[in-house]
Amino acid sequence: MDYLALFVLGCILGSFYNVLIYRLPRGKSIVKPPSHCPACGSKIRWYDNIPLISYIVLRGRCRSCSASISIRYPLVELSSGLLAILSYAKWGFSFEALVMFVFFSLLLVLSLIDWDTFLLPDSLNLGGLAFGLITSLFRTDFSFLDSLAGALVGAVPFFLIYTFYVKVRKMEGLGFGDVKLMAFIGSVTGIWGVLYAVLLGSIFGLLYALPIIFKNRNLSFAVPYGPFLSLGCFVGTVFHEHLRVIFLP
């Protein structure tokens, strides 16, 4: 029952995450207007807005205009539900579990926004950084100094890379949002989280990019780095005990 309750709660929050993903980069209010179909503008009734279930009942289409509803919506809800279960299973009923669930949720939202728009909103990045620093004061597995050190180790190298590309090469090698994202990641997971984000994130990014490179036979394409940094940190944090043996045998 604990897992079921957490899954339901996570799915409900996932429905809100969909609102953030769609509205934040467009500069729209996340409070009003109420949820509506982007195709016809019809208000979505509460019984058509039940996480996962409504999508299945409506067969992925708007009740009013029959426009297709992106599969992403139920997938985000499902992901949020699974993140709630994962956080509880790994960290138990604890403050740390709550922190990690919020952390993973923010990474999910930031990743999808970055994937769509190549933007990482300051409201989430800097809000996440503040969240990491403040919650470190109350965690038993992590200190404020760990949080501060992680934020600096995450942000400073990326800031130097960003500055080099902008000042020397007159182009953006990476976005300044990635600098803030790394500070956020480090504030919650410390230096290890930063290392996982960079190392594993680079591997995941390369695996994604290689087929595109071979297909197009050139390097003239842009890939958002945020989703891969987030995925690398997520995998490293969840499997830290196993991966640490690899890096420190």
Rank of each mutant, 00 (worst) to 15 (best):
V76A: 10
G236V: 06
F16I: 08
F138S: 11
H36G: 10
G201Q: 05
S66M: 10
T237I: 12
F7G: 14
C37I: 10
F95T: 11
S68G: 00
G177D: 03
S143Q: 08
S220I: 01
L152V: 15
L231F: 12
S94F: 03
L206K: 01
A89G: 00
P51S: 13
L137R: 04
G236K: 08
G154F: 03
W115R: 01
L243M: 12
C40G: 11
K215Q: 14
L58E: 13
S230D: 10
D48T: 10
C40W: 09
D122M: 03
T117D: 07
W192C: 00
V235T: 14
F204N: 05
L243N: 10
Y196A: 11
G186P: 11
L137Y: 12
I56R: 00
F164Y: 15
L106V: 10
R169H: 01
A209Y: 02
I69F: 05
K43F: 09
D114T: 06
K170R: 15
S15A: 13
K167A: 11
D48Y: 07
A39Q: 12
S105E: 07
S123I: 15
I203V: 15
I53P: 02
C65A: 11
V179D: 01
D2S: 14
P38L: 09
R26H: 08
I246P: 04
P33D: 11
M182R: 02
S143M: 08
L86I: 14
S220E: 14
V179L: 02
S123P: 00
I185M: 09
I69C: 07
V223T: 12
T163G: 01
G175S: 05
T189F: 09
W192D: 14
F16N: 11
L106Q: 07
S220D: 13
G193T: 12
L129F: 14
